[in-house]
């Protein structure tokens, strides 16, 4: 039974094994100013998964890396709710194969990407890719902000939708799950006092490039994620992996 299931999951994974997308080099202007001085960030090219990692893909990882199985994971790497909705240690919930995997901690997400020869994208890489995606799709700031606020308003409705990992172009940046990034903590380098306030209780204007809806939507993604612990797992937080270009 289990053997048959894992064969099935491998079939799914083979289907899903589309190449990561190349995000070309360029410049981007962060919506959130972590530094007083840096306004335009120069980004080298890198590769990024086209879609968030799915349950089927994550199951393969768990089957091959037993220390990341639900019953084996070290307590220091999660908050007690790792893969909570899996009723069995080596089987994803029925019908979840093509949904973005959630209930994974930052440590687990990193381990997954490491096993694929990749890594979690940095915050800059993820946001730069997001801008690239918005340009590719011609999405206006307003449409982008509305999409993101809609997800913030009802994240579960989005996180439970499937993704197609075979389409070969960057997708699902804003309408599935919030995603882990390598340096997810909000690191404000423009001074000790700023760092202490860390964008709490109305203290956000100083970190905003402008006060448009789009910037707020982006800020909100940064800020809400930065309050998670690296052990945090939730049903609406997933990830995708980044890869260096071959040198």
């Amino acid at each position: 039974m289990y053997k048959w299931l894992s064969v099935l999951s491998m079939v799914v994974a083979v289907q899903a094994a589309a190449e990561p997308v190349i995000i070309p080099a360029g410049e981007y202007k962060p919506a959130v100013l972590l530094d007083e001085t840096v306004e335009v960030v120069v980004m080298p090219a890198f590769k990024l998964d086209a879609a968030p990692v799915t349950y089927a893909q994550y199951l393969d990882f768990v089957l091959e890396n037993s220390k990341w199985r639900r019953d084996n994971i070290a307590a220091i790497f999660h908050d007690g709710n790792y893969l909570k909705s899996w009723s069995v240690n080596d089987q994803v919930p029925a019908g979840y194969e093509s949904k973005p995997v959630t209930e994974v901690s930052w440590f687990a997400a990193r381990a997954y990407c490491d096993a694929q020869g990749g890594r979690l994208p940095t915050l800059d890489e993820w946001e730069y890719a997001s801008n690239y995606y918005l340009q590719q799709h011609g999405l206006s700031d307003k449409a982008y902000a509305q999409m993101l606020f809609a997800r913030h308003s009802n994240p579960t409705a989005y996180s439970k939708q499937e993704v197609d990992t075979t389409i070969g172009q960057l997708d699902y940046m804003h309408n599935r799950v919030n995603e882990w990034v390598e340096d997810y903590q909000l690191l404000l380098t423009n001074g000790d006092n700023n760092d202490l306030l860390a964008g709490s209780c109305g203290d956000s204007a100083r970190f905003m490039a402008d006060f448009g809806d789009a910037s707020y939507a982006t800020f909100f993604r940064y800020q809400s994620r930065s309050n998670y612990r690296p052990q945090s797992t939730t049903s609406t937080l997933g990830f995708r992996c980044a890869y260096d270009l071959e040198k």
Binding site: I76, N190, G191, D195
Partner: peptide, 25 residues
Amino acid sequence: HNHHDHMNHTTFKAEPVNKEHSIYH
């Protein structure tokens, strides 16, 4: 003076940590 001196580094406040479990994992 760090607002005016970007040559020096900024000090980040440390995060709270888990004290129950070994980091040797």
